[in-house]
Design a protein around this nucleic acid. Structure first.
Lengths: 242, 242
DNA sequence: CGAACGTTTGATCGTATTCAAAGTTTGTGG
DNA sequence: CCACAAACTTTGAATACGATCAAACGTTCG
């Protein structure tokens, strides 16, 4: 995580262009920029470690960052794949408690770090910002619960099917839709609570069944209804055993 | 979920005595009480269903409520076991998005429901309340991440060991501690991502090993260090295979 | 073109689930 | 206070599923 020294004015401009600060008061952004720094993080290098106290708010400028929980077998469970324009660390700063997750770059990334105290000071003077942050954290919370629901499903095939159903935000086409995987397959597998091998097998299976077509990281779901039907079928199959 | 009609004044008193509202402005509590209602929920009856839009903020007066994610095999993954004085629904109200979890009573319970709009109105006029709520939601988020870390561990024994380590808030005694399980074993198992059978087996095993002693819902961890050592041993055992 | 990285495929193994039934605690009514 | 019923928990045996290890296959980038 190499510090890139930048002229303060340039840093302020970078901040104001980030989606994260869209609609924020210019004065607030300017003051936050004063104590900010930009960093380059090489692929697979750590950004912060689980258990440390939060001293910065992080906003991703480019690249991709994974927030993860370390597992006893040396693997990781990914909590969130952070995309450019998104931030992380808000909740830990508010509580001033140890970070519940580690963070590392999935690929070469640029990150802006903002002093936690400066951030808290702004929150203290702006109810609008407070409300915005509350919505932000609430959104992260709910997103995590959605992921948890997927991970908790007992069948790995169903986890993958649910994941595919959740991606129905890509370009729509008659009856189906198309999208690009939001990260490496190994990372997505880690977010679904699967090994990359199992994830690969399930995707292959769905391909054989003609439910999806896969070319590299691009996936085309031929028939959304068929997917939902498959999800229901898995539920039924497990239920019939009773 | 039977509505118990109560005199508004009595309801206001009940609210002001709840831990949830400790330190809140009396005027705020009074206005919230105006649109509130108290309900009796029998054991295993639903309080709210996953996917519904949030129309109330709930605070538990007595009993116990579980927030859960439904699984395809008819079981549940418990997200949170709500204890008296705690509330739920804040995040969903802020986002006005469908509830990510269902809620049901673990035992006969009394619940107070507060209109979401009245709650939001108070938030809009009180930055202090806003900040308080932000901390509340951030805390729920982090608690969920902690649970997620336990659930994600590949070994069921380790999940139980970690759970026991997290309970080190009970009465301390030389080298160890004692506590009462915060709910039925089946519910705790569901929170750890285990079946009740597996949970029972792991507890028995730890009992045989002399690490814990169990009498009903009371558990004595004889040696906290031994437990941590055990946790580390599981990590090492899995690691040595590499 | 070569090398590093990421993904896929195959074979084996371990572990938690499942189903079934016995055992224990808790609560209730006589 | 005891007896009985219901709820909850524990134990046992068989099974299925995903993880693991190992190696081949593609792909992307110097």
């Amino acid at each position: 995580m190499n510090n890139l020294s930048m002229p303060p004015a340039h840093l302020r401009d970078t901040l104001s262009r980030l989606a994260y600060f869209r609609g924020w008061d210019a004065g607030v952004v300017g003051r936050l920029a004063a104590g900010a720094s930009q960093h380059a993080v090489a692929k697979d290098m750590p950004v912060l470690t689980r258990g440390a106290l939060p001293e910065q708010l992080y906003i991703l400028v480019s690249g991709q960052v994974r927030l993860y929980l370390p597992l006893s077998n040396g693997m990781e469970r990914i909590v969130s794949l952070v995309m450019p324009g998104e931030g992380f660390g808000e909740a830990a700063i508010m509580l001033n408690k140890p970070l519940p997750y580690g963070a590392a770059a999935c690929r070469d990334s640029h990150i802006i770090a903002i002093g936690a105290r400066a951030y808290q000071a702004e929150l203290g003077t702006s109810p609008a910002l407070l409300e915005h942050t509350l919505r932000l954290v609430a959104g992260q919370y709910q997103a995590t619960l959605r992921d948890m629901e997927i991970c908790a499903q007992p069948s790995s095939l169903q986890r993958v099917v649910r994941f595919l159903m959740n991606q129905e935000t890509g370009s729509m086409l008659e009856g189906g839709y198309e999208f690009t995987l939001p990260g490496r397959k190994r990372d997505i597998a880690a977010k679904l609570g699967l090994t990359q091998e199992t994830f690969s097998r399930m995707l292959s299976f769905l391909g054989q069944q003609g439910v999806i077509a896969m070319r590299g990281a691009a996936i085309r779901v031929g028939d959304g209804a068929r997917l939902r039907q498959m999800d229901a079928a898995i539920c039924a199959k497990v239920a019939q055993q009773a």
